[in-house]
C-alpha cells in the first residue's frame, strides 16, 4: 500500500491511507496515514454500523487536510468493539465465510474489564490525593497509594493495549488461516 500511495502522491495527488499495522506502514514509508486498533478487514469500522464508519472516515479525511509532516501517522483513539456510539448492525448481505462469535465476546469482556480498571484507577487517584491533602500519619501510606495508582495504570495498559492487540492478531491471522483450510474463503 505505502509503495503505491507514495507513487500517486509523487504524481501530484494528495493521499491519505488507513492502516492497522502502523509499524509496517512506517517502515515502508507512506506520505500520510491514519491508524486505529481494529482488525485488518475493518479499517473503516464494524460492518453495518454507518455512524461508526462515518466518524472514522470523517476523521481520516480531516487528517488529510491537517497533517503537515511527510510520513505522519495519526492514531485514532478507538478500540475494536468499543466505539462510543452503540449501533445495532444492519447488514447489506450475508457472508459465505465462517465467523468466530467468541472474538466478539472476548472483545466485550476486555472492554468491560478496561472500564472497571479505569474506574478503580480513578478511585485510587482520589484516595491518594486525599492522603496528600490530609496525611494520616501512617509512614508508608502516601507511597503505597501512589504505587497502587501506577500499578492500575500498568494493568490498564495491558488490557487496553497488549491484550486487545493479541486479540486483533488472532482475528487477523488465525481466522483467515482457518477459513482457507475449510475452503470457505474466496
Amino acid at each position: 500500500m505505502g509503495l503505491v500511495q507514495n507513487h500517486i502522491e509523487g504524481a501530484g495527488l494528495s493521499t491519505i491511507s488507513m492502516t492497522v499495522q502502523p509499524h509496517i506502514t512506517a517502515a515502508v514509508g507512506a506520505p500520510r496515514a491514519v491508524t486505529l486498533r481494529y482488525p485488518a478487514g475493518n479499517q473503516v469500522g464494524e460492518a453495518g454500523k454507518p455512524i461508526q464508519q462515518r466518524a472514522i472516515l470523517t476523521w481520516a479525511l480531516q487528517a488529510a487536510a491537517d497533517l503537515t509532516a511527510p510520513g505522519a501517522i495519526l492514531e485514532l483513539p478507538y478500540r475494536w468493539r468499543r466505539f462510543p456510539v452503540p449501533e445495532q448492525p444492519v447488514y447489506a448481505a450475508e457472508s459465505q465465510g465462517a465467523y468466530h462469535p467468541q472474538t466478539a465476546e472476548i472483545a466485550a469482556a476486555l472492554d468491560h474489564l478496561s472500564r472497571l480498571i479505569q474506574d478503580y484507577k480513578t478511585h485510587l487517584e482520589q484516595r491518594a490525593a486525599h492522603e496528600d491533602a490530609n496525611p494520616s500519619g501512617i509512614q508508608h501510606a502516601p507511597q503505597a497509594l501512589h504505587d497502587a495508582v501506577a500499578r492500575a495504570a500498568a494493568l490498564l495498559q495491558i488490557i487496553d493495549g497488549d491484550a486487545m492487540d493479541q486479540l486483533r492478531e488472532i482475528i487477523n491471522r488465525i481466522t483467515v488461516m482457518e477459513l482457507m483450510i475449510s475452503g470457505k474463503f474466496v
Binding site: 482488525p39 485488518a40 478487514g41 475493518n42 479499517q43 473503516v44 469500522g45 464494524e46 460492518a47 453495518g48 454507518p50 464508519q53 462515518r54 472516515l57 470523517t58 479525511l61 448492525p89 447488514y91 447489506a92 448481505a93 450475508e94 457472508s95 459465505q96 465465510g97 465462517a98 465467523y99 482475528i171 487477523n172 481466522t175 483467515v176 477459513l179 482457507m180 474463503f185 474466496v186
Partner: peptide, 24 residues
C-alpha cells in the same frame, strides 16, 4: 485470501466506504 473479509462481505463500507462518502 490474505485478510478476513467476512465483515466486508456483509457490508463493503467497512473496507470501501462508498456509501459513507456519498453521505459526507
Amino acid at each position: 485470501s490474505h485478510y478476513n473479509h467476512v465483515d466486508a462481505d456483509r457490508d463493503i463500507n467497512c473496507m470501501f466506504p462508498l456509501d459513507r462518502l456519498r453521505e459526507l
